[in-house]
Write a protein that binds this DNA or RNA. Sequence first.
DNA 1: CATATTTTGTTGACATCGTTAATTTAACGC
DNA 2: GCGTTAAATTAACGATGTCAACAAAATATG
Lengths: 232, 232
Amino acid sequence: MVLMARIGYSKEQEAAKRQDVLDAAMQVFETGGGLEAVSFRSVAAHLGCSYSAPYRYFSGKNELIVALRARAYCWMENVLREAINPADDAPTQLTAVAQAYIRAGLARPTLYALMYFELEGSDLGERSVELKAAKRRALGVCAEVIAAGQARGQLPSQTDALTAAHVFWIGAHGLVSLQVGGQLVMGRTLQQLTPILIRWLGAGLEQSGRIDDVPPQVAVTLRADPKTGKGA
Amino acid sequence: MVLMARIGYSKEQEAAKRQDVLDAAMQVFETGGGLEAVSFRSVAAHLGCSYSAPYRYFSGKNELIVALRARAYCWMENVLREAINPADDAPTQLTAVAQAYIRAGLARPTLYALMYFELEGSDLGERSVELKAAKRRALGVCAEVIAAGQARGQLPSQTDALTAAHVFWIGAHGLVSLQVGGQLVMGRTLQQLTPILIRWLGAGLEQSGRIDDVPPQVAVTLRADPKTGKGA
DNA sequence: CATATTTTGTTGACATCGTTAATTTAACGC
DNA sequence: GCGTTAAATTAACGATGTCAACAAAATATG
C-alpha cells in the first residue's frame, strides 16, 4: 500500500532492458533488410521473448524507431569524428568531414535513411530530447571544425559556425539523399557533383564576409498558399 | 479463341481507369493525411469499387505509389514554371525558382515528401520511365533557366546547365527536407538559412569559371567499407 | 521466512493491411 | 443467343500494431 520509493537499481535495470531491445532491433535492421523488417514480433523473436514484451519499454513502434534513429546519428557522429585529422588546417578538415558524411551515406544507405525517417503525422521525433541531442552532437562535429578554423583565422567569421555547419549539412544531405534515392537524372553522378558542391559551398563560406551582409537579393516569403504552394 | 487485336479504344479505357484510381488515391492522400492513409482498400472505397479491383491497373502498392510520385513531380514542375518571370534576368529567375521550390515544399510537406518516397528495397521507382520523365521535366525547369542565362552571358558557362541545376536542386532539397523533418537544431531557422544557401551556391556558380577547373581539393573515394562507412 | 504488492512477461484477440485465388458478373464478337 | 474474354467481387491467408486479460517473477513489508 505504501508507494515504493523508486530506487536507482530498478531504473538501471529498465534502461538495460531498453538497450537490449534496441540491440535486437538494430540487429534485425542491419541483417534483415532495413526498417521494413523491424517489427515488434521480429525483434521479440530475435530477443527470445514474446511479441508484446517490448511494450513495457517502448510505448509503440514510433518510440522504438525514434530510439533507433538516435543510434544512427551516433553512428554518423563517430564517422565524422574519425574523419578529422587534427594536424590539418580547418578547410581541409571541413572537406574531410563533408567527404566522410557523403561516403558513409553511400556505404550504408539504409542506415543513413534511418537518421531521417519519420512516420507521417508523428511529431514524436521532433520532441524526443534523446534524438535531438544525438542530432546536435553529430552536427556539432562539423560546427566545431568551423569554429576552430574561425578562431585560428583559417575561415571567415562572418557566418557563425553553427549556421555554416547547417549549410554544409544541408548540401551533403541533399546530395546523399538524392543519390541514395536514385534521383540524379541523365547520367549526372555523385562523383561529378560532390567536388562541385563542396567547392561551391566553400566559395560561399570563404566569401561570406563580402556577400552575407548585402541586402538579401532573396526575400524569403514565409507564408504560402497551402493549395498551390505559391507565395502570397 | 482468336486473340483479339488490341485496339486503341481498349487501351484508352484502361489508361482512363488508371487515372481514375490515381485521382482517388491522390484525393485520399491529400485529405486523409498522407501516404499512411492510402491503401488499396481506402482508395477503392473512395472510388466505389471493391478493394481488389485496382489490381487490374496496378500490380501492387509500389506501382501505385510510383505513379503518385510522378504526380508530385508534376506539381513541383508547375510550381517552378509559374515562378519564372520572363522579364527577369537569369540570376533573378534562378533565385526565384529556388525560392519557389523551398516555399512549395514548406507549404505542402506531405506532398513534397511524396516526391522522394521510396519503399525500402524496391528499385521500382528507379526503373519507372514515367517517374524518371517527371523528374527530368521538373529538374529541367531549373536547367533551362541556367542554360538560357548562360546563352545570354548572364551566367558563367564553365559548369554545364544540368549539372548546375543538380547542385541547386541538391541544396534546395537538403534544406526543405531537413526543415520538414524538423532536423534543424538549436534555433537555426529556414528563414536564416535560405538566403545564405542561395547566396553561397550563387557565389559558387558565378565563380565556377575560376574554381571548377582547379585540381580537385576533394578526391572523392568511391569505395567504402560497408561496415564502418569509412573510406578504403 | 511468509505474504502482499508491484513489476514483468505471456497469451489471446481485434482491426487493418497487402496480396492471391476462386468465383461471379459484364462486355463483346459471331 | 452463345461462347469467349475482360472486369470486378468475395473469401481467405499471413503479417502487423496494439490492447486487455491473465500468469509469473521479483521485491518490499511484516
